[in-house]
C-alpha cells in the first residue's frame, strides 16, 4: 500500500505533466501533416509506470520501420516482438505476447493499422479477466476493467482519434488510469491521407508542325 501511494503520487505528477495531452500528443512525437508514425508501447504515469513510445517511427517521405525484441522496462507490462512501420499515408504497429498482469490483460498479438487516414485494430487471442476480446473491435470500444491497485478503469479498443490536421491516430489498446492520470497505450499507428498530389505546372505547348485546321480566319 505504501508503494501504491508513492506510485499514485508519481502518477499525479505525470498526469499533471500530460494533462490535456492524453491523445494525439502522446500518440507519437510531433510530426507534420502528411506524415505517418507508429509506436509499439507507451505509458504515462500511474502504477503501470512510464515509458516513452517505443519503438517509434515517423515518416513524411519513404517508409520507415523499427523493431524491438522485447520491452520489459515496465514492471507491470510485458511485450515482445514490437514491430512498427510508417510511411506518410500508412502506418502499422504490431505487439506480440502482451501481458499486463495487474489488469489480467493478455494478447498473443495486438495490431493497429492506418492507411490513407482510415484505421483498424486487430487482436489475436486477447483476453481481459479471462474474457475473450473481439478480434476486430469496432472503433472506440470501451470496456470496464479492474486493475489491481488502481481499481475500476476502462480499456479502449481500437481507439481512433482524428487529429486537427486531418490525420488519424489508431491505438489498438488503451488502458486508462482513473481520473485521466495517464494511460498505457499498446500498438498505435497514425497516418495522413495520400498527399493530394499537388498538380504540376501544365506544360507549355509544343506546336504541332504542319498540322492545319481551317479556322474562322
Amino acid at each position: 500500500m505504501h508503494a501504491f501511494t508513492r506510485l499514485t503520487a508519481a502518477g499525479l505528477l505525470a498526469a499533471g505533466l500530460t494533462a490535456g495531452a492524453a491523445g494525439p500528443a502522446l500518440a507519437a512525437p510531433p510530426d507534420p501533416a502528411g506524415s505517418g508514425s507508429a509506436f509499439g508501447l507507451a505509458a504515462t504515469g500511474g502504477p503501470l509506470g512510464s515509458v516513452p513510445p517505443v519503438p517509434a517511427v515517423s515518416s513524411d517521405a519513404g517508409p520507415a520501420r523499427k523493431s524491438l525484441l522485447k520491452e520489459d522496462r515496465l514492471k507491470a507490462v510485458r511485450a515482445s516482438a514490437l514491430n512498427v512501420s510508417a510511411a506518410p499515408a500508412n502506418a502499422r504497429s504490431n505487439v506480440a505476447d502482451l501481458a499486463v498482469p495487474t489488469a489480467k490483460l493478455k494478447a498473443d498479438a495486438v495490431t493497429a493499422t492506418c492507411r490513407d487516414a482510415r484505421g483498424g485494430a486487430h487482436l489475436t487471442q486477447a483476453t481481459v479477466a479471462g474474457r475473450r476480446l473481439d478480434a476486430s473491435p469496432p472503433p472506440n470500444t470501451t470496456i470496464p476493467v479492474d486493475v489491481e491497485g488502481v481499481g475500476r478503469t476502462s480499456l479502449v479498443l481500437n481507439k481512433q482519434q482524428r487529429l486537427p490536421n486531418g490525420r488519424l491516430a489508431v491505438t489498438a489498446m488503451q488502458l486508462n488510469l482513473p481520473g485521466g492520470k495517464g494511460a498505457l497505450r499498446v500498438a498505435s499507428a497514425t497516418c495522413g491521407r495520400v498527399p493530394a498530389q499537388r498538380p504540376v505546372e501544365a506544360p507549355a505547348p509544343k506546336p504541332v508542325k504542319h498540322h492545319d485546321l481551317p479556322v474562322t480566319g
Binding site: P205, K206, P207, H210, H211, V215
Partner: peptide, 19 residues
C-alpha cells in the same frame, strides 16, 4: 479553352494557329 497549338505548313498569315 486553348485547344491546340498548330504550326501550319504555310507561315502566312500566321506562323502559329491556336484553336
Amino acid at each position: 479553352f486553348m485547344l491546340a497549338t498548330l504550326a501550319p505548313a504555310t507561315r502566312t498569315p500566321s506562323p502559329l494557329v491556336l484553336p
